[in-house]
Design a protein around this nucleic acid. Structure first.
Length: 827
RNA sequence: GCCCCUUUAGCCCAAUGGCAGAGGCAGACGACUUAAAAUCGUCACAGUGUGGGUUCGAGUCCCACAAGGGGCACCA
């Protein structure tokens, strides 16, 4: 009695944590890539964190789930590479450092140390010998090397254009970092600013980035695939040349509806385009002034105003005319900000009858509407509502009567003959703006020389290391803080030796994360970014795990880098992440956790209250991994209770380790082996919550057997308990390890293999057959597994309750699915 | 406006087109206890958002609608 209450025989999760951590440090069960390891390889990758503080609940979920997968494959006998690192450059770290008056470097590395300690305690199955930190020169030197490889191939270039500018952060933003016209980071309205900036030519890969998504179908969440497709936004159409009165060269427009060419009644160009300025320069002074006023107004407006869909159309007439190539019609040319300078050619043909935007513009400025497709809807000329559906072409000369699709084809072909049109496609995707006017990032390895222009930093001078932040004003002021680091920025031109200046911008941190999965192959190499043989061995990533917040940005950029590296010949695959799991978010009370909302759940508190295992188990058990977890809906104390229950069951086993399981209690053996049959597919299908439920089921059966007929010494009890320990180690490694030891084994349950199910144990010689009448259950009885169709049907027909259900109705059909089901359909 | 996802018991969630319930939370009851906690055990609770359709048979497939969530959106 008293003995049962000694600590030795009581589940103490905190003591267990302390006990096993040092043992695992020694054992290193998750080291990968040792010489002579003949196991097949598997690359499981968790998205690496920003070191912006300690780990939070979101990290806890992501790493718990990634760990289930990594540990599963280890137990299946794979050599699993499951690395971790830190995405440690970037604005969050820098802003926090400014706010606290600290060096971003010291602040960043302190946080890394803290997160690393927390990950160890959280029992993440990381290979600690492969850690990388993107703000280490040994890492970002290869960003610079990659930049220069891109530069060599024309994939990195500089151009002047109107870029997204956050007046609050005082830096440019990529398109992807502007959300609903607001800065992703500070929620201030984003404006435009003409600047010369560095770009990566991601548009050159737009087709492949889109088409190759098909190869990921089924292995990536369909949501992510559709977001990427939306983002790339390919549309097919034609480029059509319109001659311009009093101008030698024609203006080319892009249209997806060449079939409506006869309905074009005006042309619109983007007001902020060079074309608009050029065209208006040929107009009289009153028009030029009006245009200038309009342009000023457009430039002042921000994206929120511009994107408001219910906004009235605005624009000015440019005093010039275009000629419609299909019928010689004279079309007035307008400038309006609903046409974008950087999409298509920055100019459109306006067909108000068949385009809502053109229609509202035509109405506002009283421009003509001409219907050229009869869709069966109300005539737009009369109704003032544009029609976009299929129909028959009208008012279109020899093309009358064609369908929309035929018209698109025929009209384009007709113009193609005279060289006035060609098939074309356009993308919503823009080139990736990578310059940032910030300190804490990878310096762009270019030197600007007055005589030589842009000069790449020679390979032997890489890395271009960041100068110390000492004495630099990091506060945002619109230009890079690095420009003020005199000693750093002023260098001799590598070409001509004359005084020159370093490029003082730093790279977008998405550059860092676009190829880090390859750097894990050799995180400390000073020779190469990554060794090609190792890439052959490990890459691409078999399983990527992370939040859906990166569904567009990070994943698109990483896919782009992969394709470029493939084309250069460094790797032989074109998609970086074979399989992707997006875990949901952890909410509290229905909304995202935040300090200001007062619903913040601190991970460290949860771990102190319930222990690591219970929190990990709760994360996995809460529901399907891609769904959000509302912490108000789950019960970490329930998880802790279950773990104690499992632990006690293992503690009750009295048979010796190594005992032969054959001959053990049949019922429990069946439970164990049906578990073994079901568990693997569940984990491989990401149904972790169901997998945990199956373990609970097995523990319930185990408890019953210990307390019942089998008793604690039965071999089946040991078999079940060992199975529980192994399976549980994916979710609750401390508890599982302790169970494993108490069952008489050496430490290292993580490396113990899960046996295959012995299906012969699961063969039943009888089953319950059900009889339905018109689909409704009427009777059930036990039958032999090998019962014949006729015999089962006869048994069913003989049933009294069945006969009563049929009553006097005529039988239309009898469906027999022996041995389990008979359905009698009546007329 | 276009596209996608979700909707099963008080709650979180299971269910190869074949008996709606695997698991858990909260709950009720019982055993153990002087008592309580802990533990062990037993139990109740929905006919699957709504309306149609396909089928011998639908939570599951198809169509429409509703609610909630998400993505894209003046991209020619």
């Amino acid at each position: 009695m008293t003995e049962q209450n000694t600590p030795e025989n009581e589940y103490d999760v905190f003591a267990i944590q302390e006990k096993w951590l040092p043992v695992w440090d020694e054992l290193k069960p998750f080291n990968s890539g040792k010489d002579g390891d003949t196991r097949p390889t598997k690359y499981v990758l968790d998205m690496f964190p920003y070191p912006s503080g300690d780990l939070h609940m979101g990290h806890a979920e992501a790493y718990a789930l990634g760990d289930v997968i990594a540990r599963y494959w280890v137990q299946k006998g794979y050599n699993v590479m499951h690395p971790i690192g830190w995405d440690s450059f970037g604005l969050p770290a820098e802003n926090a450092a400014i706010k606290r008056g600290l060096d971003p470097k010291g602040w960043t590395y302190d946080n890394i140390a803290q997160q690393r300690a927390s990950m160890r305690r959280y029992a993440c199955s990381f290979d600690w010998d492969r850690v990388l930190v993107t703000s280490d020169p040994i890492y970002y030197r290869w960003n610079q090397w990659l930049f220069l490889e891109f530069y060599k191939r024309g994939l990195a270039y500089r151009k002047n254009s109107n870029v997204n500018w956050c007046p609050s952060c005082q830096t440019v933003l990529a398109n992807e970092q502007v959300v609903q016209g607001l800065c992703e980071r500070c929620d201030n309205a984003v404006t435009k600013k003409a600047l010369t900036q560095w770009y990566f030519k991601v548009t050159e890969y737009a087709d492949r980035l889109l088409d190759d998504l098909d190869t990921l179908e089924g292995n990536w969440p369909s949501k992510v695939l559709s977001m990427q497709r939306n983002w790339i936004g390919r549309s097919y159409g034609a480029e059509v040349d319109f001659a311009i009165e009093n101008r030698d060269a024609p203006v080319t427009v892009f249209t997806t509806r060449p079939d409506t060419l006869f309905g074009a009644t005006f042309m619109v160009v983007a007001p902020d385009s060079d074309l608009a300025a050029e065209l208006v320069s040929g107009a009289d002074s009153e028009i030029r002034m009006k245009f200038q006023d309009y342009l000023d107004q457009v430039k002042q407006s921000n994206d929120i105003e511009r994107l408001a869909t219910d906004r009235e159309k605005t624009g000015v007439f440019l005093g010039r005319y275009a000629i419609n190539p299909v019928n010689g019609q004279q079309l007035p040319i307008w400038a309006a900000d609903y046409v974008l300078a950087d999409y298509g050619t920055g100019a459109i043909m306006a067909v108000p009858a068949h385009d809502e935007r053109d229609m509202s513009f035509a109405k506002k400025f009283d421009l003509p509407v001409l219907t050229v497709v009869d869709t069966g809807d109300d005539d737009p000329q009369v109704s003032g509502v544009a029609t976009t559906g299929d129909g028959k072409l009208v008012n279109s000369g020899k093309f009358d009567g064609l369908s929309k699709a035929e018209g698109i084809r025929e009209v384009t072909a007709f113009l193609e003959e005279s060289g006035k049109a060609k098939l074309a496609k356009n993308f919503r995707l823009r080139d990736w703006l990578i310059s940032r006017q910030r300190y804490w990032g990878t310096p762009i390895p270019i030197i600007h020389c007055d005589s030589c222009g842009e000069v790449p930093v020679p390979q032997d001078q890489l890395p271009v290391e960041l100068p110390s932040a000492d004495g630099l004003d990091l506060k945002p002021k619109g230009s890079s803080p690095l420009g003020a680091a005199e000693d750093w920025v002023n260098v001799a031109c590598p070409n001509c030796g004359k005084p020159a200046k370093r490029d003082s911008d730093t790279m977008d941190t998405f550059v860092d994360s676009s190829w880090y999965f390859l750097r894990y192959l050799s995180p400390q190499s000073t020779e190469v970014a990554f060794p090609q043989e190792e890439a052959k061995r490990w890459a691409p990533v078999d399983q990527y795990v992370g939040g859906v917040t990166h569904a567009i940005l990070h994943l698109l950029y990483a896919r782009f880098f992969t394709k470029v590296l493939h084309d250069i010949g460094f790797i032989d695959f074109e998609e970086p992440f074979t399989r992707l799991l997006n875990q949901g978010m952890v909410l509290m009370g229905g909304s995202a956790m935040s300090k200001s909302r007062g619903n913040l759940v601190r991970l460290s508190d949860q771990l102190d209250d319930h222990g690591v295992d219970a929190i990990r188990l709760t994360m996995a058990f809460a529901g399907p991994p891609e769904e959000d977890i509302d912490w108000a809906d789950v019960s970490p104390s329930g998880s802790a209770k279950f773990l104690a229950r499992a632990w006690r069951a293992a503690n009750d086993v009295t048979s010796p380790a190594g005992i032969d399981f054959a001959g053990g209690n049949t019922e429990l053996r069946k439970a164990t082996h049906s578990f073994l049959r079901d568990f693997g597919p569940l984990i491989e299908g990401f149904k972790f919550n169901v997998g945990v439920a199956k373990i609970m089921e097995l523990v319930n059966a185990l408890r019953k057997a210990i307390d019942g007929a089998a008793g604690p010494s039965d071999s089946s009890v040991r078999e079940a308990a060992e199975t529980v320990a192994k399976a549980l180690s994916l979710f609750a490694p401390y508890t599982a390890e302790d169970m494993w030891q108490r069952l008489g084994h050496q430490p290292g349950v993580a490396l113990a293999t899960l046996p295959e199910a012995d299906l012969s144990l699961l063969v039943e010689d009888s089953t319950i057959a059900v009889v339905q009448v018109d689909g409704k259950l009427r009777d059930k009885f036990e039958v032999p597994m090998d019962i014949t169709k006729d015999a089962l049907q006869a048994l069913a027909m003989a049933s009294e309750t069945v006969q009563r259900a049929i009553a006097d109705r005529e039988i239309a059909a009898v469906i027999v699915r022996e041995p389990k089901l008979v359905n009698i359909a009546t007329k």
